[in-house]
Write a protein that binds this DNA or RNA. Structure first.
Lengths: 193, 193
DNA sequence: TTCATTTCTTGCCATTTGCTAAGTGGAGGC
DNA sequence: GCCTCCACTTAGCAAATGGCAAGAAATGAA
């Protein structure tokens, strides 16, 4: 594992010197999780914020009928966490599960608070990431409102092709808000075109 | 207009003395907007954050077919703004429009930055509101994934009955992700029950 | 008031999606 | 190798929703 990936990521979000970036990520510790492992379980308070150096994760919850609903995919070189649970210190309603073996850099809530307090640019980084996550969610919300399932599928293929190499179709289906049967039909049509 | 409403709201989000709360909201200025007025137009950078003391607003954008899509309703005693545009200083893609005459308290981006810098608890307030907005969006996202249009309609009635008194049905329909025709049918069924 | 415009409802039919169940193919355990 | 489990596809039918158009009801302007 190589912390440089994280350091470079931080610099990309908020330009700064490599030395400064290294200070910012000082409290992040290496954590490996095997495939199908859990980083967070519903009912628990999310106490860590993970930067995924290698691997893919997803978060999911259950609907009233008891079916799994995939709420997000977390690709390589991105952060995985339940922001609501993490920042509000409230029990999470979702599970975060590794889909492949994962190598991550993780920071606890307490350490993050400390870093927020000590380093204004870490604070700024945190706010940028939060606004960024908000933006991603809003984008997805909008796509649910104004696009067909097929368009959403097509968007996901182009934006995150790496997901399709590892993720079972049924996860993608519930992420798109449709059944795996429908997704199968959509794929068939899609390939035909 | 009475700034106490805003002061009480701030104290509710983050408990503090009335005097302290008054300091926090010092930079908010009274702004009145007539019905059907615009607080933000697509293409512009959102430069103000509005607390609605009286009235209702909505934000909307256009889909690829050129139809309006209502992205949010802003009720009394809540904040209206395009957070992405406001914090990223990027052009907004949506319009924020008053649905009734509105009385608001508004703060500019520059003043908010200054307050963030000067007052740690204002910063904390800002973060709480941002996480809160994220939570609302996530909740809505989830409802799109796992509920029927009728359930979403029912939820909106119970959570925001005041909206129905002023807002045309077609706005609500596009907010729910369906056509006004479908909403009309759903209402018919709903009343029958 | 009257007229025009907008909002809302309704009917008809097409399309999309869901539900259930069956069948195929592949991966891994024995 | 064989068997079981899981992922995926496919089919038939039902339900939800959309598109279009007509008409009723409400609203606003003159």
């Amino acid at each position: 594992m190589n912390k440089d990936t994280l350091i470079q990521f931080v610099q990309q979000v908020l330009p700064m010197s490599p030395a400064r970036a290294e200070q910012l990520v000082a409290k992040f510790n290496a954590v490996k999780i095997d495939k199908n492992g859990y980083v967070l379980k519903a009912g628990a308070v999310c106490n860590a914020y993970y930067f995924i150096e290698k691997g893919i994760m997803r978060s999911y919850t259950y609907n009233l009928e008891g079916d799994e609903v995939t709420t997000a995919f977390y690709a390589e070189k991105s952060f995985a966490s339940d922001l609501l649970s993490f920042f509000n210190r409230s029990p999470s309603r979702e599970y975060i599960q590794t889909i492949t073996d994962c190598e991550t850099w993780s920071i606890t809530y307490a350490d993050m608070q400390e870093s927020f307090h000590a380093m204004p640019d870490f604070r700024e980084f945190g706010r940028l990431k939060l606004v960024n996550s908000y933006g991603i969610l809003k984008e997805r919300m909008l796509s649910m409102l104004q696009e067909t399932a097929e368009q959403r599928y097509s968007d996901l293929i182009s934006s995150s092709p790496e997901i399709f190499q590892h993720v079972p179709l049924k996860y993608i289906a519930s992420y798109l808000g449709i059944t795996d049967t429908s997704l199968s039909r959509i794929r068939k049509e899609f390939i035909r075109k």
